[in-house]
Simulated assay, not measured.
Amino acid sequence: MKKILGRGRLARILGTAVAAPALLAAMPAHAADAPEGKWQVKLLATGVLADGNIDTVRSINPALASMGAFSAPQTTASNNVTPTLALEYFVKPNISIETIAGISAHHVTGSGSLEGASLVDHVLIIPATLTVKYHLPLGPIRPYVGAGPAVFLVMGERPGATAAALGVTRTSLSSDLGVAIQFGFDVPIKKTPYSLTFDAKKYWMDTTAHFYVGDNEVLQTKHSLDPWLLSAGIAYRF
């Protein structure tokens, strides 16, 4: 009886030893073949490189127009680095819809004849963006291109030191609708749901700036914001 039990136990051990490598070999293959999640969230550090040039001087108070510095005013907007969050949904394996959330702070200074003039401070911009992306099936590195509408929500702006010294008591920058294109790529981190991600967006976006002394508008200018948003971070797909 002991011999029979011994032989049966030995057979089971040998059977397990033979089967185990096959099972282990099958497990990674099964994981690699599993469908990827439809959702992806990205945490990014984003550089916002704005333009801010004046396209048009729509109206100007004669007192300002008579000042040499305001005969042909020009401005630039400061750059900034800010955290952003992106949420992406894959409609198909190679097609997704993405939106981003974040807020960026800027100030507007003069250039040219207004060089160094502080005109608008504390401009907060929320670049609400929705893009449709196509992911190119090129192996482990996953490049993509995309395009879609965008709205820049502008708030918190106030007169800069130079504008305040000229008597400006209030400034207002309009929120506006524009368009964005993007390109970038994701690099999966081994066989995990995580990826390194790199993204570039180009916007075409205008805003109209209003400068007031009391209730009277003394200057109105149209500006091209037209920023680049350059981002890098980590993505998680589920």
Rank of each mutant, 00 (worst) to 15 (best):
I4Q: 09
A11R: 15
R12Y: 07
G15E: 01
A17N: 09
V18S: 08
A19Y: 03
P21K: 11
A26G: 01
A29H: 01
A31S: 04
E36V: 15
K38A: 13
Q40C: 09
V41L: 10
D51L: 12
N53C: 03
T56C: 01
V57F: 01
R58V: 04
S59Q: 11
S59W: 04
I60D: 00
N61Y: 12
N61Q: 09
A63E: 05
L64Y: 12
S66D: 02
G68Q: 09
A69I: 12
A69E: 00
F70G: 11
S71C: 03
P73Y: 02
P73G: 09
Q74D: 11
Q74H: 06
N79H: 11
T84M: 14
L85D: 00
L85T: 12
A86I: 13
Y89E: 04
Y89V: 14
Y89I: 14
V91S: 10
K92H: 03
K92S: 05
N94Y: 07
I95W: 15
T99D: 00
I100S: 05
V108D: 00
V108S: 02
S111T: 15
L114Q: 08
L114G: 10
A117L: 01
H122E: 00
L124M: 12
I126V: 12
L130N: 05
K133D: 01
K133T: 02
H135Y: 11
I141W: 01
R142M: 08
P143S: 03
Y144A: 12
Y144N: 09
G148R: 07
A150H: 01
F152K: 07
F152G: 13
M155W: 05
G156P: 00
R158C: 02
P159L: 06
G160D: 03
A163V: 08
A164S: 15
G167V: 14
G167R: 10
V168H: 01
V168N: 04
V168Q: 07
R170G: 04
L173F: 10
Q182H: 06
Q182C: 13
D186M: 12
K201R: 14
W204G: 14
W204S: 14
M205L: 15
A209E: 10
G214T: 11
T221Q: 09
D226S: 12
W228N: 02
L230D: 00
L230N: 02
S231L: 08
A232I: 08
A232E: 01
